Amino acid sequence: MLTRRAALLGAALAGAATWAVAGSYDDFFTAILRDDPDTITALLRRGFDPNTRDAKGQVGLVIALKEESHKAFAALMAARNTQVEARNAQDESPLMMAAIKGNEDAVKQLIARDADVNKTGWTPLHYAASGGTEQHLRIAVLLLENHAYIDAASPNGTTPLMMAAQYGSSDIVKLLLAEGADPTLKNRLGLTAVNFAQRVSRAEAAAQIAAAIRKRQPNAGAW
């Protein structure tokens, strides 16, 4: 009889523990979406793993940045065991998400925690170069100051300059060229940064890049 009662008690405790974990899981991601730092902090103090992934493989830091839940992001960053290099299913890092969102403060915090500025594949600089705001420009400057490789190639050979040519501001194009980006590079489809600008009718960006290419060419008739 005692053995059976012990077994029943053990099963009940296990069920309660499973329910508690499931409840904490839902509460955690709901708190991120609601930008509720108090609930996040309470869960982390009880031992909840801040690196837990949701059903789509997204980690809390990336979700907080994507949803612009700034207080939730701060609560997650306050946890020492939060992994700032945890990637989502698309291989996006928190630093990449902060860059595309133009969140300069988050970029600074992540770099201070040794987030990888030069991850392989798509990089934070690609994402920063895709933005058109003053914040994106400042983030691009910050990444370059922290040794971001200016001609980083994505899996299809696209460079940050190409992204800036099609999506970013003229100021970012100007910055990348001034800092030494190679305007002659081609991606795997044979497209240059000029082509990226031309296919969306960005005449100013195309002209900037074409001028940079001409500067690289030796003067005709030079001895």
Rank of each mutant, 00 (worst) to 15 (best):
M77L: 04
A178R: 06
R113C: 08
A89N: 15
I150Y: 08
A78N: 01
V84E: 04
S154V: 02
W122T: 15
T133W: 13
V117A: 06
G102L: 09
A203E: 13
Q109Y: 07
A86I: 10
P94M: 02
A79V: 04
M96Y: 08
R199C: 10
S169K: 03
E92N: 15
I111Q: 12
G180L: 09
G168I: 00
A78E: 12
V200R: 11
G180T: 00
L125G: 04
R202C: 02
Y167C: 10
D171L: 03
S154N: 01
L176C: 06
P124R: 10
L185F: 02
L142F: 12
A178C: 08
R113K: 12
V141G: 14
E179L: 09
L176D: 03
A193K: 02
A178H: 06
I150R: 06
P160Q: 12
M97Q: 15
A148I: 01
M163D: 13
K186L: 05
D182I: 09
F196H: 13
E85M: 09
N146F: 11
V200H: 03
V200Q: 04
R80H: 11
R80G: 11
A164D: 03
G168F: 11
L176I: 11
M96Q: 09
I150C: 13
V200F: 06
N146C: 02
S169P: 05
K119G: 15
G102T: 14
G121S: 05
M162F: 07
Q83K: 14
L137P: 12
D182S: 00
S169N: 06
A112F: 02
Y149A: 13
A197C: 07
T159I: 07
I172Y: 05
E134Y: 03
K174Q: 11
A115G: 01
R202P: 10
V107I: 13
A181Q: 09
I150T: 13
N187K: 07
Q198I: 04
G168K: 10
V84K: 08
P124W: 11
V141C: 12
L191R: 09
R199S: 06
R188W: 06
A153N: 07
T184D: 13
I172A: 09
N195C: 01
L143T: 09
T120H: 11
A148W: 03
T82H: 04
T192H: 07
P94F: 13
M163P: 00
S201D: 15
D171A: 09
E134D: 00
N195Y: 06
G132V: 03
E92A: 15
G132D: 04
D151N: 09
N187H: 14
Q166D: 04
